[in-house]
Design a protein around this nucleic acid. Sequence first.
DNA 1: TTGTATGCGTTATCAA
DNA 2: TTGATAACGCATACAA
Lengths: 361, 361
Amino acid sequence: MSEHPPPAGAWGSRSASQSPTLADVAREAGVHKATASRAMNPLTRDQVNADTFRRILHAAERLGYVPNTVARGLRTNRTAAIGVLVPDLTNPLFPPIVRGITDRLAADGYTTLLANTDNDDEQERAQFAALESRRADGFILATARREHRLLARAAERGVPLVLVNRTVDDLDVPSAVGDDAAGTTQAVAHLAALGHRRIGHLAGPQDLSTGLTRQRAFRHAMDGASLPVPPGAVVTCTGYTEDAGRLACRRLLDARPDTTAIVAGNDLIALGALTALAELGRGCPAEVSVVGFNDMAFVDKIRPPLTTVHVPHHELGVQAAQLLLERLHDPHAVAKKILLPARLVVRGSTAPPATAPSASP
Amino acid sequence: MSEHPPPAGAWGSRSASQSPTLADVAREAGVHKATASRAMNPLTRDQVNADTFRRILHAAERLGYVPNTVARGLRTNRTAAIGVLVPDLTNPLFPPIVRGITDRLAADGYTTLLANTDNDDEQERAQFAALESRRADGFILATARREHRLLARAAERGVPLVLVNRTVDDLDVPSAVGDDAAGTTQAVAHLAALGHRRIGHLAGPQDLSTGLTRQRAFRHAMDGASLPVPPGAVVTCTGYTEDAGRLACRRLLDARPDTTAIVAGNDLIALGALTALAELGRGCPAEVSVVGFNDMAFVDKIRPPLTTVHVPHHELGVQAAQLLLERLHDPHAVAKKILLPARLVVRGSTAPPATAPSASP
DNA sequence: TTGTATGCGTTATCAA
DNA sequence: TTGATAACGCATACAA
């Protein structure tokens, strides 16, 4: 056994800043490495005698043994690490999603490798390659475009992949997204019920599933309410940003000055629209109502408090992680697509139109 | 997967979903593993003949070789991965910090391992252990309390550690934080210049460096302006949350009903204070002015737009990452503490007091 | 139930 | 400049 054990938590002759290995534990417990390995692994724990198990565990504790996940990963070819790619963490949409992901993953002992892509193909490729070289067991992408080369190739190679928030065209990849269509429909219904007839849409980028789905749902809902969507009433923003929203709103009101309500592609676009309205001296909701999408943090505090479609982002993250874990457990499972309910939250940015709907023939 | 051999980029006889290894590349190029290794590593690249280098690189490309970071990590005992611990990513304070960290780390080829602790000791311990078992090369903690057992022990063990946003007492750990004292001083000076004399402080938790520093700076600045800080004018919040701010604000106004201005420990506390004021029917800034701290995203959009102290959070993250990289490069470097400038941003939540400062004797 | 032997993919050391 | 060999720490097939 050990001669004079150094103060505490040291391990014999090894240099002070070295971690003890399974070999050290085995030596300390007087067993073979393999037995120590079995004792430390929950899955093989029952293969070892109860008594020796206690001895080994005790030795491990005494030495402060921590299993080396890197070595284990090399041996087992599984790292219990998941790559998470988001466009930009400072977009308030993503923190709750990522939080949901990490919460679910951590519960199963998985670690989250986080990377931002800034919607840049080259950055995304580089980050994805880096995480793949790290042998992440799977990926959760919040960066999907409807057509996505990198994503398609990865899926074809059989890389375990799950999409969150956005989805992709023509590919059987599991995903967890909000019900964009239903949310948009509720927004239009709300405005129609208030008496609005000239409703515009500031659409998100059409190469993103959210942008396209919401735009189509908008037209469909308008049609269903027998409301017209004349040329210029739908303007596509260059991005999900405040500034793109501001610019698009000006174009919308330029083409359709009598617009009384706007369905924005998301909350950032809605904020931009509010700015544009303020610049143009048009009151919201007095003259123009605005509905957002996502119910980002603090949009209830702005002026006017934003009517918007709530999407359960944390739960989106949880479900995405859950899907990935299931897929890792059973690689041949069918690629589920989860749609989480969205619901309109009415606040102060919507009101009946100031002038009654035109009563002329 | 598919029975049909994959179209292109397959590697001889290996099973379809296997990555090619250095051995495969070496065989393809007709050299030894070791030579291939040297060719693929930027640091040893020049040890290899230019011609064979091209041959190896070509072979690697043909096979789609990606170095296995796990194996490299086992061999070199360095993983190029950094553990990042935050209390809660959905607190708007942290996304820009984390973004700054990942930006700087990614630039040097490091990967970010992200974990949330929810200010819970046990969660933090577990997450830290998990990341350590993964052999992260170092850690950036946004979770520091002034006295922090886990942190202290890790520092003593020589684990490369950097603190961000918050710091710790009595420990030589590098850190990057905002200039809390200077920011608070500016806030008080601003209010005093507006004519406020009865200024209260909703202090953050005093076991956090930010809470203590700002509280002390508040008292010091008040003293410097010859303004009194009577009992009850400083209330400590139970946390950096809206609700804690709301409750504390009620206690403050209960004890000191004639308060005309409030310096909040941070923006969330300020938001809670605004809520409390609204509940009590006290206008802001008409009756009570409020100053926040941090300049979180979108506090310029709320009503009233929040006067607050801007802290360069992204840069805080960048600097923290930079400190850690330096420390990894030179483990014996001195533990720098970086203080980034904070500056008051005046918006709509502050105004001169409604009643002129009491003119009685 | 435990011990033996081997290899995961890479890099460091030594020889040639 | 290149090749041979060993070792990083662990898990597992096989033997005992």
